[in-house]
């Protein structure tokens, strides 16, 4: 493109009437070349690059670790679905026929996953077994325990379980229903709080990452001030000058993200043994969950986007500010 001389074929591409497809390929080849060039630039200033990447990796490690923590706590809390079991105590003196018909109705209910009937006698036997009052219980003239229906809702969330409890409590032969869900609600609240905290910390740290990358790129622009002036004097556009810096930002993101991933993996590996001994004491088959593929790529994408944004903010302000002062 030549503004002053309309007949002057100045662009390398337009001078040769290169086909659109080839120009498209060249466009990408050029980008790859510049990306590699920027990588080489990082390599040539290893100490500064390693510091920036290190800060980036550590900054990303904390939110990533917290995310894994929330994920694992959630896994634990999800395994307590039994907690949402509803116990329906049947009125004393109800005959077996009525109980059986209620049992059948509940089994057909769409909101209910499973119903178990524990008869008076079963309850008494179990109580005798477990409590150790076996001998004493034989002195009872009649069985004081009620029939119980254990109902497992399909939807085990606290809210819907409570709704189901209210509905079932209205059944004629039901004395009252009981749902021990408070502690589950509390756990949910704590997990929710944890997740909010993670979000806040993540936002703060990601902000810090933006500033760090922006500052690194700014220093690198300042150290190349002369070069930038020369490029501007021979006709480079701002877009051309800023491209290598943007690629540097992307590379910072890539390496920072990888570093964060490696740190988290190392931490998991380190903790695996300790957690294993704790969970074996609790007779639990809990397994620490690591990153999934999607989470890994999300982390990398986030890191790259941060790198790009940080360098873009810096580049946009500082490159246009550098103007050649004279021939």
């Amino acid at each position: 493109m030549s503004i002053l001389f309309s007949g002057r074929a100045s662009s390398g591409a337009s001078a040769h009437k290169i086909s659109l497809g080839r120009r498209f390929i060249m466009f990408w080849v050029n980008h790859v070349r510049q990306a590699l060039f920027s990588l080489g630039e990082l390599w040539r200033t290893p100490s500064a690059s390693i510091l920036t990447i290190g800060v980036l990796g550590v900054s990303l490690t904390l939110p990533a670790t917290l995310h894994l923590l929330v994920k694992n706590v959630q896994q634990v809390s999800d395994s307590f679905t039994q907690a949402a079991e509803i116990s329906l105590f049947i009125k004393d003196g109800t005959d077996d026929r009525q109980i059986n018909s209620l049992l059948r109705i509940l089994q057909a209910d769409n909101d209910i996953a499973r119903v178990t009937h524990i008869s008076k006698q079963q309850a008494l036997d179990e109580f005798a077994d477990v409590s150790g009052f076996g001998a004493a219980l034989t002195y009872l003239t009649d069985n004081p325990l009620p029939d119980v229906l254990l109902v497992l809702p399909k939807n085990t969330s606290a809210g819907s379980a409570r709704q189901l409890l209210e509905r079932l409590s209205k059944e004629r032969i039901v004395e009252f229903g009981k749902l021990d869900i408070d502690w589950l609600t509390r756990l949910d609240a704590i997990v929710g709080l944890l997740r909010q905290a993670v979000l806040v910390i993540a936002v703060l740290l990601l902000g810090a990452v933006l500033l760090i990358i922006g500052n690194t790129i700014r220093l690198s622009i300042m150290s190349k001030k002369d070069e930038i002036e020369i490029m501007k004097l021979v006709g480079a556009t701002d877009a051309f000058i800023q491209r290598p810096f943007l690629y540097s930002g992307v590379w910072f993101g890539v390496f920072g993200g990888l570093l964060a991933f490696l740190i988290v993996e190392a931490m998991l590996w380190w903790l695996q043994g300790a957690i294993g001994s704790v969970t074996s004491l609790y007779d639990s088959d809990f397994r620490l969950m690591a990153f999934s593929i999607t989470e890994f790529f999300s982390l990398m994408l986030l890191a790259v986007l941060l790198g790009l944004t940080g360098s873009y903010l810096s580049v946009r302000r500082h490159i246009s500010a550098i103007e050649p002062t004279g021939p």
Binding site: I3, L4, F5, R8, S10, L233, G235, A236, T237, P327
Partner: peptide, 12 residues
């Protein structure tokens, strides 16, 4: 920049 490409400049 496009104007500068049409003018070759040699600096002291």
């Amino acid at each position: 920049p496009y104007v500068r490409r049409d003018v070759g400049i040699i600096f002291q």
